[in-house]
Simulated assay, not measured.
Amino acid sequence: MNKPLRTAILFAVPLLACAMAASAKEPGNVFISSEKDHTVTVLDAKSQQQVGVIKTCKRPRDMRLTGDKGKLLVLCGDDGSVAIIDVAAKKVVDKIKLQEGAEMFDLSPDGKTLYFSNEDDALLVAVDLASKKVSKEIKVGEEPEGVLISRDGKIIYVTSEVASLVHVIDTASGKVIKNIQVDKRPRRFALTPDGKELWVTNELGASVSIIRTTDHTVAHTVRFEPKGFRADDITPVGVTMSRDGKTAFVALGKANHVAVVDVGTRAVRNLVLVGKRAWGLGLSRDEATLYVANGLSDDVSVVDIAKGRAVKSVKAGRVPHSVVVDD
């Protein structure tokens, strides 16, 4: 190798290393909504220390990042609105009035429409984000809660707590095309990465219903029976899925544990002790850390997934509800 070429390569290698380091995303933030403090607590994902508290609207609950991750949308139940937070600035930059009784929501894949459940009026409501106007109202069962849109945007799933149903709604027509009977008080959803299974937590059924999305029938029910707990203390709510679709994490509510479930075998691999009333869940980008919002101990448990245990507890306002990880 001639000297000029060797010199060029030696000079280029450090530059390439610098470029790769610059393009690698540094750990960002973890956002936790606090129902009683009307705030969103911000943690640094690397240090897991609090770096900010954002005043929102009354009783912030469900949260979603926009597709570009530039904005965080926070639904506030007690004033029926969505606060829009600028992620970089860590402050509310806009609000959209919804309706009283707003519970949970999801965003269409194109980011143009927000769909939320109205618990008081038993509705799924569509809001055009550009005009901030209601574009559609769809009647569903009593006390709707969970809302999830399929990845192609063609189907919306909504839980009805009182009717113990999952409603399957055609987005184009705005009609309920099927009602799926599940266990008592269904709450939240998670889709497997291939979109073939919909996991639904049943708070008063101590279970998860697994629905085939091809024919919208219940394929299996995972029941949770941790030793030492009464059945009415096992109240699954939050659920999230690993990117490879092999592991599901289910927050067991008053049982103060998170169940780690093998998706393929449906077996509970581990039960992780966390804080009081484990509720919302958030998984880090590298899937090494699970954040668990504990509604009755006013904190977030930081779970090391490899170790299979909580390694830290961080205060997160009164009655933390949901967790969004932006790292």
Rank of each mutant, 00 (worst) to 15 (best):
L296I: 01
D286R: 13
R64D: 03
V324C: 00
K196Y: 04
P4A: 11
G295Y: 15
S47W: 08
D233P: 00
D79S: 05
F105S: 03
T247R: 10
K315C: 00
T7Q: 15
D120Q: 13
G238I: 09
R212G: 10
T240Q: 04
E145V: 15
G141L: 09
T217F: 02
V258W: 05
F105R: 09
I169F: 03
V323R: 10
S164K: 14
F224A: 03
A12T: 14
N270Y: 01
G317F: 08
A231P: 00
V323N: 08
F31N: 06
A259V: 05
I138E: 01
A248K: 07
K112A: 10
A206C: 07
V268L: 05
A310H: 02
I84R: 09
F11V: 14
S297F: 06
A231T: 12
L15D: 00
M1L: 11
A22N: 11
D244T: 10
A83M: 06
I149F: 01
K36T: 10
W279E: 14
F229N: 07
R6T: 12
T66M: 02
D44M: 09
V166N: 02
T213G: 03
I156R: 11
K175T: 13
D86W: 07
V42A: 05
R230Q: 13
V166K: 07
D94N: 14
K97D: 06
A293F: 09
L165I: 10
P236G: 07
L73F: 12
I138L: 02
E142P: 00
L75R: 08
K91D: 11
D62H: 14
T201E: 02
I96N: 06
A21E: 10
L114S: 09
D152K: 14
L191G: 02
T159C: 01
A306I: 02
K133F: 00
A267H: 13
S81G: 01
D128G: 06
V176F: 01
T265C: 02
A122M: 07
A89L: 14
K312T: 06
K136H: 06
E161M: 14
T289K: 14
E287I: 03
K97N: 07
G80H: 11
R6Y: 07
A83D: 04
R64N: 05
T265Q: 06
G205L: 12
G141W: 11
D37N: 13
I180R: 07
K25W: 00
P109A: 10
A219I: 08
V263M: 10
G52M: 08
G205Q: 13
L123K: 15
V74Q: 03
Y157A: 13
L73W: 13
D298A: 15
D232W: 13
N29H: 13
L123G: 02
V261L: 04
L10F: 13
N256A: 14
D121C: 01
N2W: 03
V162Y: 12
D233K: 15
A24S: 10
T66V: 04
M241P: 01
K136Q: 12
L129K: 12
H167L: 01
T213V: 05
Q181S: 15
N256K: 15
E203H: 13
V314W: 12
D170F: 10
K184R: 14
F31A: 04
E137H: 00
V42E: 06
G253T: 11
V263C: 07
P4N: 10
